[in-house]
Structure formats: C-alpha cells, structure tokens
Design a binder for these strands. Structure first.
Lengths: 224, 224, 224, 224
DNA sequence: AATGAATGAGTCTTCATTCAT
DNA sequence: GATGAATGAAGACTCATTCAT
C-alpha cells in the first residue's frame, strides 16, 4: 500500500496510525511501525502531534467528525422515527464495521477507570462529574484528556437521544426510561453486535429491521 | 486496605491483582505494583502463577466460577421466563457492578481484533473458528489462550441462551433472531448499561423491570 | 582504554562486547557492562544487534572472516605441505593468542551438549545431523543457531583438511585417519596449546617447528 | 530414574547434580531442577554444600578421585611406554565419554580468563602464578577457588607427564618439547577428540592404536 | 533435621521521546 | 524542515540463597 509521496506528511501519518492502531490497539502500537508505514521520520510525527496520545486523539476526532456529518444528515433528512432509526443504525453499524478496533480501543480508554477515577456526564449541570474511587483525584490536565475522549461518544449518542426525545414528544414511543440511557444502551448494543460479527454489511438491512421491530413491538407472543 | 498477614500469599496476590488490573487494565498493570500492594516479593507471584497472563486468567476464572454458580441457580430455581430473566439480569448486573473494569478489560482482550485475527464460535462444529484478517494466522498456543478467555463469556451467555430457547419452545416469545445472538446482545447491553453508571444496586429493581418490559412489549405506543 | 568519540557506536559496542565476553564468558556477560564500557545506551545495542546472541555472533563472525582471509591466503600462496602447515599453524596460533577466551567461549557453546543434543557434520549429506541424547529434540530455530556457530569452526578447519588431503593425494603423508578428524584434532590441539600459555608469539616459530617435526617424524627414537 | 530412598541425601544430591550439570552446564543448571530430581528440599542442599559452586566442586572432585585411582593403576601396573600410553588413553577416553559435558564445563571455568586474570602453573616454584591482564587482581579467596579447580586437571595430566618423562629417560622417545606441555597437548587432544564424537567406546581401540602410531612414527611417508 | 515458601537483586528487552545534523 | 540515531526508564521474569516451621 504505497502512500503517494504528494500526500502531506501529517495525512500519511494519520493513515498509517489508523492502520496500526486498528490492528494492535493503543498500547501495542509502536511509533516505529507507524513511521515505517508512513514512510517518514519519527521526528516528523512529533512535529505534527504532541505525543502518541494526541496522535490517537486526532485520528479518532477526525473519524468522529466524518461520522457526525452523516448522523446529522440522517436526523435532518428524515422526519419519521422509523426512518431516522433505520438510518442512524445503518450509518453507525457501517461505521463500526469499518472502525471496529479503533472504537473498541476508544471505549476502553473511556469506560475503564484508569487511575481510581471515572467521568460521568451530568445531564443537569451539562458537564462531567469526577467519580473518584481511590487514590488521588485527577489533575485538571488528566481530566481534560478524558473529557476529550468522552465527548466523542457523547456527540454520537446525542443524535440518537434526540431521535428518541422527538419520538416521545410526538407520543410515538413510551416515556419509559431516561432517553439518554436508552440511547446509550442502543448505541453500545449496536456496537457489540458488530464486534461479535453478528452483523455485517451483507445482512445489515435484515438485521436492522429485526432490531427495530423488536424495539417497537417487543418479543412477547400476544395471547389474544 | 490493609491486608491481614494471615491471609495466604496467593490470595493476597489475587486481591492486589484485582485492584490493579481493575484500575489500570491489562497492559498498564505492572507486577511491581501488584507486589507492592500484596506486600510480597516478585518471585512469590511467579511461584503461584506461571506469568502475568495466567495471573489475570486465574483471577477472572475465579470470578466467573462464582458467577456461574449463581446463574445456574437462577436457571434451576425458576421455571417462568420472567422470573428467570429478572433473576439472570439482577445477578449479572450485580456482578458487573462489582467487577466493572475487570470485565471491560476482559472484553477488550477477547472481542477485539488485536493481532489480525479473531475467534468466532461455530455453533455447528461446537468449536471456535479463526477469522483471520491480515498477517500470520495465530499459532495453536495463541489460539488456545484466546479460547481460554472466550470460554468465560460463552459460559455466562449460554445460560441466557438456554432461557431464551426454553421460552421459544414454549411459544412464549417470538422466534425472531438466532437466540445465541440475542443472548449476546442482551448480555453486552446489560454490561454497558452498568458501565455507564445507568444502573446501580439502588435503582436496579426498577431498571430491570423496565428492561424486561421493553424486551417483551416493545416501546411502541399502540394506536388502537 | 578510552574509546574515541568519533568511533561509530556499533564499533564501540563490538569492542566493548569483545572485552566483556572475553572476560566473563557468554552467560556471565551483562549488557549493562557492555553498555557502560561502550559509553552508550542500552537501546543503542538493540538498534544494531537483534539481541545478545546476535551481538556475540556478529563479533565472532567478524573475527572469523578476518582469520579466513589469512588462512585462505596461506593455502593459495604456498604449494609445499610443510610451508602450508607452518603458515596455517602460525596464522592460527597468532589468532588464538589474540582471541583466546572468545574462542573458548565459542567452543563451549558448540561442542558441549547443553540441551540434550549435539550437532555433527555429516560429510556425505553435507549437512549437520542432530545427535539427540535425551529430552526433546531441538526446534528448527535452535538448530539453526547452533549451526551458525558450528559453521565458523568448520570453515577454519576445512582449510587444514584440504592441506592434508592434498598431501595425501601427493603421497606425501600416510592415509591413516579420516583427514577431517585429523584436521579437527590438530586444530583443537593448537588451540589448547595456546590456551595453556605454552605457545606465545615469542616462542612460536620454534614451537611450530617442533610441532610439525613431531607430526611428520613422530617421537620415537629409532633403534636401528 | 528413581533414586532409592535409602541412599543418603548427599549422595542423592550429587547424583542429581551430575545429571543436571552434565545436561545444562554450570550457569544453566538450577538448584530447583537438582532438588526435584534428588527428591529432597532446597535447604538440604545448603546443609551439605556451602553453595552451588561447592556442590559443583565436590562433584568433579569426586569424579577426579575415581579417575586418578584408575590412572595411577595404569602407571603402576605397566612398565612399557606403549602399554602405559594405551592404558592411559583408554582410561581417559572412557572417562571423557562418560563425563563429557561435566569436564567441558570444568575446562571452561578454569582455562578461561573470567575476571581479568588467569592461573598458570609455575613448574619451578611449584605453585600457581596469577597472570593479571586487567582490572583488579583477584582476592585470595577467588584465587583459592580457581586453584581448587585447576588442581584437578594438573593431577590427571601429571600422570601422563610422568609416563613421558620415564620414556625420555629411557631414551625411548625424543627430548623434544617440555614434557609438561606435551602432556597437556595430548590430554586436551584426547578430550576434544571425544567431544567431537570422533572416538566412542566402539571404535576406541582402533582409534587409540592409530593415535599412538602417529605419535611414535609420524605421518610422513618415507621416501627411501 | 528437613523442608520449601519467600525473597529481591539482577537480566534481557522494549519503546516513547529527544535533539544533533 | 525533516530525520533517525541515541537514550534510559521501565517491565516481565529468573534463581541462588535464606529462614521460619
């Protein structure tokens, strides 16, 4: 996969980084492999990116930006709940399929408590609370890093939450759970489905139809 | 968390390992830290556990064994689908709540593609297929390691699958999706719900009731 | 022995390695000491040499190459058996004198059975046979490593064997033993002589003359 | 190889040590393996032997004592040079064949310069001189250890030297080289011959006859 | 007496980051 | 600017030796 020499260095590095992070995960990825694939020097990476973490962040931030454009388009282009849901699910599943490991890495960075503390979105204050479990509370800088990553998810999930809220407001679906929570559940459910290999581009339409059907009508066989 | 001096070394080490793996994840955990917390020597760890991986495996294997006893009891003690589902969900959620990060680490190590290949359970041959994507296929030893971990999940999910299959056979719920897949989805959905902090022991009963209600009846408001 | 700063790092490392391997043997040599003497960082060693073994191999391979040039010149430049033998012996003794311990380490690595198996050159198949004595036979990789080292000796000894074979064919010396074996014996005899300090550059000419005289005429005093 | 329970512990340990040192060499041998084979505890080893080195020394000392009894018998029982030489060679080759690696280990420990200094027997003062090459001269204790090992060789070689001296005095063989040196050469020549697999118990008689023939009559084809 | 659990200094090896050219 | 040689802190793992039981 020879990368054209005319492509700017930073783009070449990001492409190589995507390839390697996706294959190896965050810790197992070495800059040596990235620069080898990007056909550049190690110093160059540090010219464009502060460090390994920022390289990773820039990469996923960019991926997220592209996804957000698509998700927002789904929301804007359709008005019915079913169309929005199907569109959202298809877009997301397709994205996960392409960026499976990258996003798994991302989850891992966010969900896990890596230094005795965790972030939790506070829907009222509209900021993140620090849930400290042991050890020292995080520095402002550490907190900022984690928020940076958490924001990526929140953006993606918020679109789904808005779809649900709209449907609730139109009395189309029950006001049963906190729509934020429901949106999170559906988001991660879709992600794990893809990760387990249960959904692929080939069977996606059928699988998404069943998924939506279950969501709307449930699994119970009505004894009427 | 002063550990009593009378507790056997291997137990002290496992406790310390749980603490650190849960805080740092697999790669970021160092034996130095485990040893420091267990208040023992490095050689002692290697006396009881072949290496870092086996220490981690022993830890999660033990947790899994305890969980399996509870899950099997739920299946055996109840006959109705609803009771079984509620029991399963409560047991699992309570377990996840206690072992949140450990299980996240486990997922990450298992489900994600970290070396160009992935395991997939083949329900017909009743073994695992290797899905190779790039690079060299894994050695038998590498495969064995991953299977060891994958088995943990499969055991837990199989109980849920059996609950679903029984319900299908009794014509209680629709035969809509592959029950293995459905069981996987529900399993990971419960897991991520807990990880996001949406469910805690305090609100668990209410949340599980809603969860089951959604599963059975769906979210649609019937326009009758 | 201050090493000039302008000498390339890999050369500095090889020099330091020679010093330490010669002093301590293979197992007892630590990279820490090599690095300290080479006045460089540990990573630098691993930049130039794959691992400790390859560092050692590179070192002896280089020594061997230099020696082979000299030995081949002796064979090419002289035609009489006596001149060839004297030239070979002097070259080899001079080399052993300079690289005494390094070559002792090498012998030890090759000749001794250190894992239940041993290599033996098969003159007919022109490859090495594995003589397995106990335990598992070596892996291909282990075998390759040992062959790598064994080749060094074989190259050096082969020159001597050719000298003997030529002399046999010219009916100058008796066809008494397998010339390969005889060559090996003489080679190791010269080596041990040097190692015991019996031959030094100062007494070399005299000693080699006696050595050759004994070889040709034997030690018996003729009672005629 | 179940070692009888009635055999004293120290004997069991020495037998196990022989097995393992012969298989692995000195550095690669672990006490764990020795005690496993000796079916005893690690503390017991330290009860009978000061440390790993003394265990090794006791082992080779004992082997040497047995060999010396045989070699001295050869010297005492025969009067002719040829009988003595054949007897010495056969005894030694048979011993080397049985204790190949053990003696290789020994040579390596003795002949090589392992800390910037070396021992050399001074035939006039009848003690060992320290040949210091670099670094600090050895402590008295270090010197004593090495002498301990060197003595083993010297005893064995001295028998051969006496055979040669007697033959010289009887005007049977030429007074050509220092008989000490010549004895050393023959000793090590026999050893390396065995180590290369050129001599085994099966072909020993034939090989020793050739060896002696070469020694006495040389290899030259007489053009008379 | 005999044991083996416990120890930790010591080893090889990796890799993010820097900086001289 | 761009490079990659150089670095050294850090990590997994080993093993001779000790000592409480």
């Amino acid at each position: 996969m020879a990368v054209g020499k005319l492509v700017p260095k930073d783009v070449r590095i990001l492409r190589a980084a995507e390839e390697v992070f996706s294959r190896k995960g965050y810790d197992q990825t070495t800059l040596d492999e990235i620069v080898r694939i990007a056909d550049t020097g190690k110093g160059t990476v540090y010219k464009y990116f502060k460090n390994k973490e920022m390289l990773f962040y820039t990469l996923v931030r960019q991926k997220n930006d592209e996804l957000m454009v698509e998700l927002n388009a789904v929301y804007a282009d359709h008005k019915s709940f079913q169309e929005r849901m199907l569109g959202y699910a298809r877009t997301l599943v397709s994205f996960f399929y392409r960026n499976q490991v990258l996003w798994a890495v991302l989850i891992f960075e966010i969900l896990t408590v890596s230094s005795g503390w965790q972030l939790r979105w506070n829907n009222e204050t509209r900021t993140y609370d620090v849930i400290s479990r042991w050890g020292k509370p995080p520095t402002e800088q550490e907190k900022a890093v984690k928020i940076k990553f958490a924001e990526l998810f929140r953006e993606e999930i918020t679109v789904l939450k808005n779809i649900l809220v709209d449907a609730e407001n139109e009395n189309y679906i029950k006001k049963q759970m906190d729509p934020s929570i429901m949106a999170q559940n559906m988001y991660f459910s879709l992600m794990t489905t893809v990760m387990q290999g249960a959904v692929t581009p080939k069977n996606m339409d059928e699988a998404m139809a069943k998924f939506l059907d279950s969501f709307l009508y449930g699994h119970l066989i009505r004894q009427s």
